[in-house]
Design a protein around this nucleic acid. Structure first.
Lengths: 357, 357
DNA sequence: TTTTATATCGTGCACGTGCACGATATAAAA
DNA sequence: TTTTATATCGTGCACGTGCACGATATAAAA
């Protein structure tokens, strides 16, 4: 107990197998040039004494160097995709210790040509691995096929293309998050009518997250036979006068609506309207704890925020690729779903996306 | 970009400062025997070229070995403290790579003499660092003073003794979690009466967590001037006939109670009663996603579970101590509060306490 | 038999650091 | 002046691994 058992080294294996450490090394790395007899003896010894190579000594000696490229949507400060970027940076810090560098290539999430250009650039960089947010499914499918042909491993975050040979996926259960949002809203002071505000999308981006969430929402309504009506209307993705007019008209038409849901990260736009019109009695549910959403929640204009831990998704995605090279391990799960956290004014202060030591 | 800048080594520093690597090493580790002139030159160079020692090469060379002892309550399989134990094990796995071993000493959380004995045993082991769940505040205070006198760093998890020189604390905001529980229950279909079931505690354990949560609960009631009554009764900490009788009497006396809160991890006891009596229409809120609680939630007898991420607390506690030795860093925050996750039947399947890659 | 090709293996250096040990210069004591 | 003590410093080995290179044994070809 006091003096814990010494670590077994490659030298111990060599001695017990009656060969040199060079031969053991050849066995470990499948480098060939080993007789069947030696091979068996070495493998037996490794198995028997449970030899595990010292990763850090290995790292020191090998001088190998890997490069990961991350393909994510561009963003302004405070917007959703900044969160993923932060997770990438944190992972990068840790990767540096392992001779792994991380580069980020950004694309305009509203323009498919921008995405395609980013893909071409990435291929040209000849990376050792790729992390990708596959916003445009057709182009992304083509891109990951190209990667696969070049034997470049890749992981998805946020959404995935199921029929591709991805190493891992880190995301949230989208349908279920919509389902959950219905549950939270409807049981909150017994909702009878719910407004749902969606957003016009310029460009032909995939991003059907909001649509799938709405499916989850209506699925809950159907399954629980609630006598609850759902009114859907469309806004523009920024705080602007058009939105004010749209919302004015909406609430004129539906004066009894007390509950509102927004299926993306821009619920602050509706919250801002509620504040302006003194409609603080409405119950608003949104997604993603952006600073503006959290501020609106603290001010009392958003009741629930569902958080999806995007920073953790990105962090774990990069780390999975790093571990793949350094430790030769694949993630234990191919599909990894983050928890859906329910935030209210009472616990939002303690919310942390990525907490590592 | 392609060939990233080479890492600067101690040899580079030595060359630029016009000394040998031995002298640089003496400067880095404050080992003395360096002239004022050399000291300044070396420090200047380190600062200028931003030299950072290679932790893994250092680890390989130094052969230093540290031992962490964790002092936690004993548990049966499936009980609350098993979660902390799991977190310790996961951290241990990672620590092994750094020549850090972790031992666990358990005590009976209901007996102060057991705790004191565990403290004595720990001191005798002469550990390099200690992680502790300070269930009995007086004895724990004495113990950590002893540790401090011996210059042994220590961290708290779960609860803390504020006026002691702890390295870090990882826990949940207890009062706020009670506050949150009131918010969730009262806004759920407009609660009017709430039952609160506490537990008899044999022994004189500290563990005032439940009491503090109740304070948070009533604070919410007061601040929001709800016309809501709170009835408190006491149970025994296991599924047994006495509890059935107590609960029968309670609900006979309070037939209109539809909402129930339990401030510790044993809400499954009440859920079991509800199932037995066919009282599935009651709305029960409990703490900690033990297997039995989660099962009761999925069966429809628990509406909300507040999770406190105990596994993460323990994991981060151990890692903080490990990093303290290996990287010579203290945690950036002394007090670290975990998020309070709100679990319902709709998101409990995706709950993960500790998710690392 | 001698030469050549091939399969198999061991040796030794390098990675960046920690540290023991001995070397050197200088000052103080004899 | 010679001896001794002290302050300061450099050298070289070790940690465990990866890998290039050369060494050896054996079989095939000449």
């Amino acid at each position: 107990m006091k003096n814990s058992e010494k670590k077994v080294t490659i030298k111990d294996v060599a001695q017990l197998a009656g060969v040199s450490k060079g031969t053991v090394d050849r066995v470990i790395h499948n480098r060939g040039e080993v007789s069947a007899e030696s091979l068996k003896r070495v493998l037996d010894v490794i198995d028997r004494i449970g030899y595990k190579p010292n990763v850090y000594a290995s790292l020191l000696a090998s001088r190998k160097h890997y490069r990961i490229v991350c393909l994510i949507p561009d963003f302004e400060s405070g917007e959703f995709w900044e969160i993923a970027y932060k997770g990438i940076l944190k992972a990068y810090e840790e990767c540096q210790d392992f001779n792994v560098t991380v580069d980020v290539v950004r694309y305009d999430q509203f323009r498919v040509d921008s995405f395609q250009q980013a893909c071409r650039n990435t291929i040209q960089e000849a990376p050792d691995a790729v992390l990708i947010v596959p916003m445009f499914s057709d182009s992304a499918a083509q891109f990951v096929n190209e990667l696969h042909a070049r034997q470049i491993p890749f992981v998805f975050i946020e959404s995935k293309l199921p029929d591709t040979p991805y190493l891992a996926y880190f995301g949230m259960p989208v349908f279920e998050s919509g389902y959950l949002s219905a549950r939270l809203l409807l049981k909150h002071q017994c909702a009878k009518e719910v407004a749902c505000f969606r957003f016009h999308r310029s460009g032909d981006a995939l991003s059907n997250t909001a649509s799938i969430r709405q499916q989850g929402f209506t699925a809950y309504l159907e399954q629980h036979g609630e006598a609850c009506k759902l009114w859907v209307d469309y806004l523009y993705p920024s705080v602007c006068d058009e939105n004010t007019k749209i919302l004015d008209r909406f609430f004129e038409k539906h004066p009894d609506v007390r509950h509102i849901v927004v299926f993306n990260s821009r619920s602050y736009i509706v919250a801002e309207y509620l504040r302006m019109r003194g409609m603080g009695d409405r119950v608003l549910l949104g997604f993603d704890p952006l600073e503006r959403n959290v501020a609106a929640m603290k001010a009392g204009y958003i009741e629930y925020i569902i958080a999806q831990k995007c920073e953790t998704q990105a962090y774990r995605g990069v780390k999975a690729l790093c571990n793949y090279f350094v430790f030769k391990t694949s993630p234990s799960l191919k599909d990894n779903y983050m928890s859906m956290e329910v935030l209210t004014a009472e616990n939002v202060n303690y919310y942390t996306d990525l907490a590592i030591e």
